[in-house]
């Protein structure tokens, strides 16, 4: 399952989600502003609280809205 670490009102997060939807990729939203667990997870993955962070395995991740890198991640 693809996870998108994000928060409400983050336009780049919305762009990632829209893009995944357009590719018919299901994802789970993890809100790092409201959910401290999600925030800790995000920090563990990327070492930071910048989002969107998109990941499948919690190891490889894409920071920001980067179509090429997202395509690579989905293909893995």
């Amino acid at each position: 399952m693809v996870k998108v670490y994000s928060f409400e009102g983050c336009p780049w997060c919305d762009k990632v989600k829209k893009y995944l939807k357009s590719k018919n990729v299901e994802y789970e939203t993890r809100d790092i502003e409201l959910d401290d667990t999600a925030r800790d997870e995000c920090e563990k993955i990327s070492g930071d609280t910048s989002v969107p962070v998109t990941t499948i395995d919690g190891k490889n991740y894409v920071l920001g809205f980067d179509k090429a890198k997202l395509d690579e991640l989905i293909a893995m």
Partner: peptide, 8 residues
């Protein structure tokens, strides 16, 4: 302008 946002 970067393509990500920072919550903190």
């Amino acid at each position: 302008v970067q393509s990500f946002c920072k919550v903190n």
